[in-house]
Design a protein around this nucleic acid. Structure first.
Length: 668
DNA sequence: AAATACTCAATTTTT
DNA sequence: TTGAGTATTT
């Protein structure tokens, strides 16, 4: 295998050759980031570096997958699979399974997702005299997460009650022998910080550290990476501050901005040649983002020629906006011989999708809602996983709570409380008291029968799961609990029931896959995968059909469309009403718009409307300040052009809107 | 325990 | 307007 250096531009070549020492690659949108990382990896392997020593960190499973695929294409699958390339969460999970005992915790821990966290926080709230029905636990969940990602709970919580709930929440996690997503990082960081021998082991194992999306790391992730790289200083960070859109989740741009300070002598390589979009799209995007302060100066230059100007569609109402966008999709599709999958409609909030969906359905155009209904978040999957979790970790009370009476077997809320109280009183995890004679004696007959049935099922399931194939034991469970009937009863439509059952079997299939690639497959191992795999698994029908993609601006990051629409470009959406109090927030909103704009390859449309229905009633809307900022580089839609395909009503409205649009800007 | 009625809140969501 | 979650009824 040899590197084809000619396939790289000079900046990319520099980035590929930079192997030793700290390197920051500033990779603008569409500048061939993945290609560069893949080539660099191949280059390293060619110089004799062991694949096992190159740690590759991404934030999403999807990114990890695509990275591995690209490297596979260059160095072959056998070598590529040996590279430890994973999300930072799964890296931490693996380190903790190996070494968490050094911190006095059980390596068999469960991983709690947001739903499990909420349940525990509810309990903790109730115990501290805060009624979870009157007080929404979600803001607390959010705050706790932020605290774990930035550190120091004592300072973060002003009132003692919140601090007490936070401490209780963590105690409950420990009782469940569980870690939440943030704990995975926090415990891993603590492990490396407090156990020098463990740190030395990983520093030695991972001689080269490579991090994607460096602009999105938080403080804990930074500490982790810093510790790993401290000794050898081989850290390769790739990112683009202009695409940092997760500040609200604790990501901090300080790290990418202070890279040279953290790693003195660092090399900076800028990738500015863009292979995705035409120049006029980039000009408008560059102009918009140049309004942000404190950024490293960067200007994307297209390798594809000038192309078309960015076009603004102004509509009278939200329905008209949807109609105008769809008219454009139809006319561009014919004009440029495109497929539906060449089009992407990008919006700020999920609620905006509905009106586009309705309009698309009405006109018989296929679409996919990207990011919706994540596979592992579906109820039937979580239920099934809860059985597996409880089998793997009998302390996992959150899982128990989910399944002890599902399918219904006569165990009511009262009885569940009794079980929990009993467990508390005896200082034992709930799962362990289920077969206690003293407890069973207090339960009514029907309930006792239910509990005994549940215990029997769990025993047999656990026993079967300890042998391979594990998939068979899950199939057995689905049969034994008769989920087919249960699901049919629970859903009003037969198709929904069928789909849910199919999803359960889909989970079994992924278990089969897992067992076929992992020699030492275990229930716990599979669960770890599942807990960290919150990606949607695209279903077969999504892949088959040619369809327009609908998604939020956040989920559009990393994607590209021949023709992209950034819709709802109004004050209130961009920037969002809830994110315009501080300049920091507005700048992040601007980056969000920038991410949306740079998704477009050949044509970019930006739309807005003068009135839209919100929470039931019509409200007036004004065009976004961001539109104003790029006004000099956009053209307004000429309704005449789409007349053939469009309803004539649209043409009239658009004409009047165009006038109004200009007026609105003059008002300012 | 399940079905139905009411109340309240509504940004984004890599794991 | 829609939905999630809770309270009330059957």
């Amino acid at each position: 295998m040899t590197i084809h250096w000619k396939k790289l531009n000079p900046a990319q070549r520099d980035a590929v050759k930079a192997v030793e020492g700290p390197v920051l690659v500033v990779a603008g949108a569409g500048t061939g980031k993945t290609r560069t990382i893949a080539f660099r990896t191949a280059h390293m392997l060619e110089t004799g570096i062991a694949p096992e020593s190159i740690l590759g960190i991404t934030f999403t499973n999807k990114a990890a997958r695509s990275m591995r695929e690209r490297v596979s294409g260059l160095v072959g699958r056998d070598t590529a699979t040996r590279i430890p390339l994973s999300t930072i969460h799964s890296l931490c999970a693996r380190m903790l399974r190996e070494d968490i005992a050094a911190l006095g915790r059980d390596p068999q821990f469960s991983i709690f997702d947001t739903g499990d966290q909420i349940a525990l926080i509810r309990t903790a709230m109730a115990e501290h005299g805060l009624d979870p029905r009157r007080n929404d636990p979600r803001p607390l969940q959010f705050r706790f997460s932020t605290v774990k990602n930035t550190g120091d709970a004592d300072r973060a919580f002003d009132d003692p009650q919140t601090l007490a709930i936070y401490n209780r929440y963590n105690a409950l996690l420990q009782k469940n022998n569980a870690l939440d997503f943030d704990d995975l990082l926090a415990f891993a960081a603590r492990l490396l910080r407090e156990r020098p021998e463990v740190l030395a082991k990983y520093q030695d194992r991972f001689r080269f550290v490579m991090v994607d999306e460096y602009q999105d790391i938080n403080n804990v992730q930074y500490e982790l990476l810093f510790l790993l790289a401290r000794a050898h200083r081989n850290i390769y960070a790739v990112g683009d501050e202009d695409q940092s859109i997760y500040g609200w989740r604790g990501a901090s741009m300080d790290h990418i901005r202070n890279f040279e300070k953290a790693f003195p002598g660092a090399r900076i390589v800028k990738l500015e040649r863009n292979y995705r979009s035409t120049q006029q799209i980039l000009d408008a995007s560059n102009l918009l983002i140049s309004r942000n302060t404190g950024r490293r100066d960067k200007k994307l230059v297209s390798a594809l020629g000038p192309g078309f100007a960015v076009r603004v569609l102004a509509a009278a109402s939200d329905r008209d906006e949807a109609a105008a966008v769809i008219d454009r999709i139809i006319s561009e599709k014919h004009k440029a011989h495109l497929r539906l999958s060449d089009f992407g409609v990008l919006f700020r909030t999920n609620a905006q999708s509905r009106i586009f969906e309705e309009a698309l359905i009405a006109r018989g155009i296929a679409y996919v809602l990207v990011g919706a209904a994540k596979f592992y978040e579906r109820k039937e999957i979580k239920d099934l996983l809860a059985y597996m979790r409880f089998a793997a970790n009998a302390q996992d009370a959150a899982a128990l709570d989910r399944i002890i009476n599902y399918p219904a077997r006569g165990i009511g809320k009262k009885s569940v409380d009794a079980i929990v109280d009993f467990a508390m009183a005896h200082g034992q995890p709930a799962g362990f008291v289920l077969r206690d004679g003293g407890l069973l004696a207090q339960l009514p007959d029907r309930t006792r029968a239910g509990v005994e049935f549940f215990t029997r099922i769990m025993d047999e399931f656990r026993d079967r799961s300890s042998r391979r194939p594990i998939a068979d034991s899950v199939r057995w469970l689905i049969e034994k609990l008769d989920f087919k009937t249960v699901l049919e009863k629970a859903s009003d439509d037969v198709n929904a029931a069928r789909r849910r059952l199919e999803n359960m079997h889909e989970l079994v299939s992924s278990l089969v896959d897992y067992e076929s690639v992992n020699r030492d497959a275990s229930l716990a191992g599979f669960l770890e995968n599942a807990a960290l795999l919150t990606d949607e698994r695209e279903s077969d029908d999504d892949l088959k059909e040619d369809s327009v993609a609908l998604m939020t601006l956040h989920s559009a990051k990393g994607l590209e469309f021949t023709v992209a629409f950034v819709v709802g470009c109004e004050e209130g959406f961009l920037p969002h009403d809830r994110s315009m109090d501080t300049d920091e927030e507005v700048q992040e909103e601007r980056r969000l718009m920038y991410v949306g704009m740079t998704r477009a390859m050949k044509r970019l449309f930006i739309s807005w409307c003068g009135a839209r229905r919100k929470f039931g009633d019509m409200v007036r809307r004004k065009p976004s300040r961001f539109l104003k900022e790029i006004e000099s580089l956009v053209e307004y839609d000429d309704p005449g052009e789409v007349k053939d395909e469009a309803r004539s009503a649209y043409a009239d409205i658009a004409k009047s809107q165009m006038e109004r649009f200009k007026q609105l800007f003059q008002d300012k």
